[in-house]
Amino acid sequence: MKDAPKAQPGAVKGLKADMIWGVIWVALGIFAILYSMPYAEVPSFDPIGAAYLPRLLGSGMSILGLGLFIDSYFKFRNLLRTVKVESTERDGPQSSNYQGAVRILLSIIACVCYIALIEPLGYILTTPAFITAIMTIYGESDKKRIAAMAVGMTAALYAIFALGLKVLLPPGIFEGILQ
């Protein structure tokens, strides 16, 4: 970065991403306009109808998305013109980024499993498993701490919600035992 005083690390990547985001928003805006077309045909109690706001928002999104794209495109060109970045950008700590992405992916999978299993298996079984999974994914190595947290947190939540507030948490396989 010696010969590139103005470029922030990741600036080029950020601007490229912004250009992609610009396209995404334009697409979402156009989608909103097209998808809400049939709503205009539905008779409504009011003069402007059900399609009015989605259309307005869709148009706004497309225009602003285009604005974002153009804005970041010019910033991108200026940056390339004034700064030599190619080599410095590539040297980033790739491996830690990669591990971070894996951790996120694993956490999301854990969440999805939790959602899928909470009703069939029951709250008091899935919650400690979920907490254990998240802590392990985060990199917690203290087994005792994981166990204490998994049991303790589940018990505390169960006490607050099911016993204190009388909300029904899914009993799952304990159905019939826990009433």
Binding site: C111, Y114, I131, E140, I146
Partner: peptide
């Protein structure tokens, strides 16, 4: 690790209810 797993468990339980 305790904090973040706890937040997720709390938020999801709250959402369920």
């Amino acid at each position: 690790s305790v904090l973040y797993s706890g937040i997720l468990a709390l938020v999801f339980t709250g959402a369920y209810t």
